[in-house]
């Protein structure tokens, strides 16, 4: 029951996520046969059965359908300060005791791909950009939801500022915890998509994504990468940690 699009180049470069898949698999014991094939090093995990092929085709169709439904000007509902849940729930593919703590002094946000100005950014520089914040509902692919307040530079403004090719299809993210994911360009440019340096007006904690998390109120939670180290713009499908295991890529809200 595993949906595998194309094997993302990132997946080949990095072996850590596969180890993490293994860990989660045995912890949760909820893995499909397809993912078991991945664990055993078998790379022919695509299209195991006719049912898998149909599900894959339907998930690709759902990506297109969601892209068509997506209205770049439609804003996610915003809530009141009293609705904010603080401290916010920790959620990742590993336990809270394994949270990555990025050192601010060494931190540099790297840019690559179809971006004109690839100079790296320090946190201080990001904090000098105009900031925005919203109180929105974070919806997890599992179904639960929580309201939080995230603040930081508008991601769309940032992309335009560094000369990203906004006609490209994808914006990809590589994270300090080996997580990776990608957004469609329209969602990356959505006015509420934010480089969240803060949560509830305080510097975002490591457990919630320090140095920053890309907060995307129009996507499910796993499309909101934390501890972002590198941002790249590309026309080649970058996939993602969960997406490569079968979660729908677009996963719009």
């Amino acid at each position: 029951m595993l949906l595998k699009r194309r094997l993302a180049p990132l997946m080949l470069e990095r072996t850590q996520p596969i180890l993490n898949i293994e860990r989660r698999a045995f912890m949760k014991q909820t893995l499909s046969l397809g993912a078991l094939a991945l664990l055993t090093g078998c790379d022919s995990i695509e299209d195991n059965t006719p049912v898998d092929r149909i599900l894959k085709a339907m998930s690709n169709w759902n990506d297109k359908a969601q892209g068509a439904i997506f209205d770049p000007n439609k804003l996610a509902l915003t809530y009141e300060q009293k609705d904010v849940v603080d401290p916010f729930r920790f959620n990742a593919f590993y336990g809270e005791d394994e949270v990555v703590v990025v050192a601010e002094a060494d931190y540099k946000l790297e840019l690559s791909g179809m971006i004109a100005d690839k100079a790296s950014w320090t946190l201080a520089q990001l904090r000098e950009l105009p900031q925005q914040s919203q109180i929105t509902r974070h919806i997890c692919v599992e179904g639960w939801s929580l309201i939080g307040k995230w603040g930081g530079p508008s991601f769309g403004d940032f992309l335009r500022k560094v000369g990203a090719d906004t006609t490209a299809k994808y914006v990809g993210f590589k994270c300090a915890d080996e997580y990776f994911t990608s957004l469609d360009m329209a969602t990356a440019l959505h006015p509420q998509t934010t480089m969240a340096l803060t949560f509830n007006d305080k510097t975002i904690e490591p457990r919630n994504g320090f140095p920053f998390k890309i907060r995307v109120p129009t996507k499910l939670g796993f499309k909101n990468p934390k501890h972002v180290m590198e941002i790249f713009v590309t026309n080649d499908y970058p996939g993602g940690y969960w997406e490569n295991q079968g979660y729908n890529w677009f996963s719009g809200a």
């Binding site: 029951m1 893995l31 599900l55």
Partner: peptide, 17 residues
């Protein structure tokens, strides 16, 4: 159905159509 959450979601969002 689906073996895990991802598989269940795939079935749900395919059959929904």
């Amino acid at each position: 159905l689906g073996g895990w959450l991802g598989g269940g979601l795939q079935f749900h969002f395919a059959v929904m159509w």
